[in-house]
Amino acid sequence: MAHANGSIDVRRGILDTAHRIVGAKGFSGVGLNEILAAAGVPKGSFYHYFGSKEAFGEALLAEYFEEYHADLDATLAEAGLSHAERLMNYWRKWQATQGSIDYQRKCLAVKLAAEVSDLSEPMRLALKSGTAGIIERVTGAVEAGMAEGSLEVDGEPRATAETLYHVWLGASLMAKIVRTDAPFEAAMATTRHILNPRTT
């Protein structure tokens, strides 16, 4: 059992280290040697945990989205707030994390979408599954907000959630280009217009 737990810890250590490095440099631009050296793991043991670099990329995305979904679930269930307030807090957290130059756990969906989607079908599918999970959760929050009257949305909840995710994904990419908060401020204004929150 101790050996199994140790293996899990080493695997997680590799993934946590990789998230920071890949988040800064991209997937193709980072060699396994750099990740393993930073994680303090011998190169020869890499394939004990991952069958290939592509399988490693899938695992990296799976771990990232598992954590992201858990954080989003917590945000959308925060006690004492309306569904509108919870949903607007999600976008505020998005801006706070993705707008920070020094933030070490930036969204891998933003960082890797264009890079790996044309290079690796398994990684593209991992991105597709992970982002679908985000949209499903936002859809549920929109539905709940409409039901309680804290949101006044003209469109269908799922289409609204998809549009908002696309808006914020685009804002994150543009923020990298212009290096200001202007894209996020525009995304927030668009979000308020689409959701028409009544309690924020």
Rank of each mutant, 00 (worst) to 15 (best):
I14G: 00
S7I: 02
A37G: 04
N89V: 03
D9V: 05
A186W: 09
Y47L: 03
G99A: 01
S129C: 06
F184Y: 11
G6A: 06
T160W: 04
V30N: 03
A38M: 01
A74I: 05
L169A: 14
A38P: 00
T75E: 05
T17Y: 06
E121N: 09
L125A: 12
F46T: 07
I135T: 13
A79N: 02
W91Y: 09
L32W: 09
A132P: 01
R105N: 11
E66T: 14
A159C: 06
G23P: 06
A77D: 14
G29W: 03
E162M: 15
A18E: 01
R124L: 06
D181N: 12
G149E: 01
L125I: 03
D9E: 07
A109I: 00
E78Y: 06
P157C: 12
I177E: 14
L151F: 12
L112H: 01
L87A: 08
D118I: 12
R137I: 05
A37P: 00
A132F: 05
G80W: 10
K43H: 04
G51V: 11
H48N: 07
V138Y: 03
P42W: 00
T139Q: 12
E143L: 13
E66L: 14
A2N: 13
Y103M: 00
A109W: 01
L76G: 03
A70T: 13
I135C: 07
I134W: 03
D16N: 07
T139V: 07
G133E: 01
T200P: 10
G44V: 02
E148G: 10
L173F: 13
L72P: 08
A114E: 01
A4T: 08
